[in-house]
Design a protein around this nucleic acid. Structure first.
Lengths: 207, 207
DNA sequence: GGTACTACTATACAAATGTATAGCATCCCG
DNA sequence: CGGGATGCTATACATTTGTATAGTAGTACC
């Protein structure tokens, strides 16, 4: 089954389709391919896609939005162990492309420990200054007490929030990571206050 | 038991989206969801999808064909429960302590897609303004091309860095997320320049 | 009794998107 | 030399598809 070789342009289109699909969860449209390569006509992109189908690298579903499917990966690679390989630091020269050089594998478990964890999604910008943004997942370890000045998820009046927990004589002070929001004072009398646990990590998906 | 984060119907819709995406390579359209459940109006399906988004189980790209993305697997109950349970948003009252009410499970794969990923640890404060801090793990999808203005890992002169990639006529401009660092101009002549791939996520461990 | 959420029907619009038609230019191969 | 593949521009449909508007009904909750 000698598939005809792909031209440079076709390979580039195929790589783009793969990348887009991975990034967005859905393959690109004909016009999105055209836009990426600066084509002024969707026909140009469609031509390439059709060529890739003809050569067996791609499959298309007619009359279907984003009806693309990569059959042959541009660089036949395999999926191995769980997690994501850690290949080094960015800022020091390193041979990233060689996955063999992986320093280890990053998994949620390895990164955050295997305690009693849960995740919540952050809404709002109240923790911006601590690098926690809207849409981030915050990983919390279930625990009734936290260290002083730890960032934690707490319940106040039945509502859950992420805040920096500062211990005071009377109780706690909940400090936001954004000057827009004033601290909240918690005393023994404050109803509906409870500590869910410290934030042990943040996961942000930018896909 | 009457605190199910997802209703039965919503869970069914989520499961269908997952299944369809697996079988067809692309997520279903609103109307395809409607057809599956016998809805006579696309609105009914859209309602469910929106509800799933609101509850954090799904993500949608507006005005985009098949712009669905499953964030939290629906079948975490009966299959392997890898990852960390997602229990909701912080800022809305929610019964976090009951893990049974989980919206799904957060794994690196579900969060970042299933491409060819690797992780690197960030050094320095050059991407501070984009919420990427020293010590963070940056998740990168191996790809030779990235979208305009994407944050990506690139090699310059054998050294790897995270930067915002801005396309220029002559080549690229590498913009740091910190005014302290001036942009780096890349032309065709620049030696040792290569794109590792776009940053698709950030993982920060604060343990 | 009112409000909110779920769960739909029905209709319609506008944007997103695949596809068709018609050319033009280059390059390789027999 | 001629034909085929490549690689495009330009324009125009016809669907496909997301979304908006307007209702109806049941349930839960306070």
């Amino acid at each position: 089954m000698e598939e005809p070789r792909l031209t440079e342009k076709q390979a580039a289109v195929l790589a783009f389709v793969e990348e887009w699909a991975g990034r967005h969860g859905v393959p690109p449209t004909v016009r999105e391919v055209a836009a990426r390569f600066g084509f002024r006509s969707p026909r140009a992109a469609a031509d390439h896609l059709d060529a890739l189908v003809r050569k067996g690298a791609l499959r298309r579903t007619p009359n279907t939005a984003r009806g693309l499917r990569v059959v042959a990966a541009a660089d036949g690679r395999e999926r191995e162990e769980a997690g994501v390989p850690i290949v080094g630091d960015v800022a020091a020269g390193l041979p990233i492309l060689a996955v063999e050089n992986a320093l280890g594998h990053l998994t949620l478990e390895s990164a955050f420990g295997s305690g009693d964890l849960f995740a919540v999604r952050v809404r709002g910008d109240s923790m911006m200054d601590y690098g926690i943004h809207e849409g981030d997942f915050v990983i919390v370890r279930k625990a009734p007490v936290v260290e002083p000045d730890a960032i934690a998820v707490v319940y106040v009046d039945g509502e859950a929030t992420v805040k920096k927990l500062r211990k005071t004589r009377a109780g706690y002070e909940l400090v936001a990571g954004n000057p827009k929001y004033p601290p909240v004072v918690i005393t023994a009398e404050t109803a509906g206050f409870a500590v869910a646990g410290p934030v042990v990590g943040v996961v942000r998906s930018m896909v």
